[in-house]
Amino acid sequence: MAGSTIPRRALGRLLRELRTKVEKSQLAAGLSIEVSPQSIGRMEDGQPVKISTPQMDVLLDFYQASTEDKAVALELLREVKAAKGDPAGWWRTYADVVASHFDHYMSLEEACSQLATFQLTLLPGLLQTAAYRRSMILTERPEMSAVDVERKIELAVRRQARIREDPDFSMDVLLSEAVLRHQVGGRQLMAEQLLHLIEVGRLPNVSIRVLPLDAGSHLGLVVQSFTLFEFPPLRASRLIEPPVVFVEGYDGALFLEEPRVIERRQKALEDVGRVALDHDDTRRLVVGIAEEYAA
């Protein structure tokens, strides 16, 4: 578990449900344990808030929580407190060279057990070679110093280590053929990148399939690129956090959690998957394009 992000979200969701059930305001809840209503709101949103176990006991009594709900909430609070001591958040040392939303993104990427992504134009960071990554960094930020460029590449390499080192992590990647055709950094660089893609695709926890350009109409063209995170049960409480969808744009990013939105994205992945090539045909297509670049 990456820090306390996921158990905090689960605890916040439970506390909001309990408060709403007894029709108490955030102001009343805050007064019951002598904290501000803003603190109650932040806690319900899964943000860090200092709260002691005795305070939580009082709050749960105020909410008239059942014995079962109280046990779950206290267990989640223990998970939050225990996670604060975990050696998590290693990526924060790169905060000065990444976007402001990256910390939250990484807390989700590190905590998830399954990552599914559909990409229309570029390879996801977990599949990029160092040369591909360098080319994209310099395209976006040509003024970036050589030192900072290399730090960003180092960050990408450290993220990619999980693919090979964590047997409980799986990745399902759907790529438009356009991703393979965009000549990022030139033909030779792309030839090497596609060979890397074939290598990673052989790993047992990785699925890579390509959507051919002649596939016709499909939901992916409407939905555009996105990533779906799914999470394992929390260590002690065994609760499972709902999935999160990540959508990145040039000027910012969205983290979507509404059940209706998640369901629509899951259906989009299913629709794209139905028209994507199977693994063998994907490999043949990738090899063929790599040979074209190398010729």
Rank of each mutant, 00 (worst) to 15 (best):
M1C: 13
I6W: 05
R9H: 13
L11A: 07
R13S: 13
L14K: 12
R16F: 06
E17W: 03
R19S: 04
R19D: 00
V22Y: 06
K24Y: 11
S32M: 09
I33T: 02
Q38A: 08
S39W: 09
I40W: 12
P48I: 01
V49R: 14
I51V: 14
S52Q: 09
M56F: 04
M56Q: 04
V58F: 08
L59C: 09
D61G: 12
Y63A: 06
S66L: 05
K70Y: 00
V72G: 05
L76K: 09
L76I: 08
G85R: 15
D86E: 14
P87I: 08
P87W: 10
A88D: 09
T93R: 15
Y94G: 01
D96P: 08
V97N: 05
H104K: 14
Y105F: 15
M106K: 09
S107A: 12
S107R: 15
F118V: 03
L123S: 06
L123C: 10
A130N: 10
R133N: 13
R134D: 08
S135Y: 08
S135N: 12
I137T: 09
E140G: 14
R141M: 15
M144I: 15
S145K: 11
A146K: 14
R151Y: 09
E154W: 06
R162N: 09
D166N: 13
S170M: 15
L174Y: 10
V179R: 10
G185V: 05
Q188W: 07
Q188R: 14
Q188E: 12
E192W: 01
L194M: 11
V200T: 10
P204L: 05
S207V: 12
P212Y: 01
V222Q: 14
F226G: 02
L228W: 02
E230H: 03
F231Y: 01
P232H: 02
P232L: 04
P233R: 06
L234C: 00
S237H: 05
P242E: 02
V245G: 08
L254A: 11
E257H: 09
R260N: 04
R260P: 05
I262D: 05
R265A: 05
V272T: 00
G273W: 00
T282I: 05
R284L: 10
L285T: 00
G288F: 07
E291L: 11
Y293D: 07
A294G: 03
A295H: 12
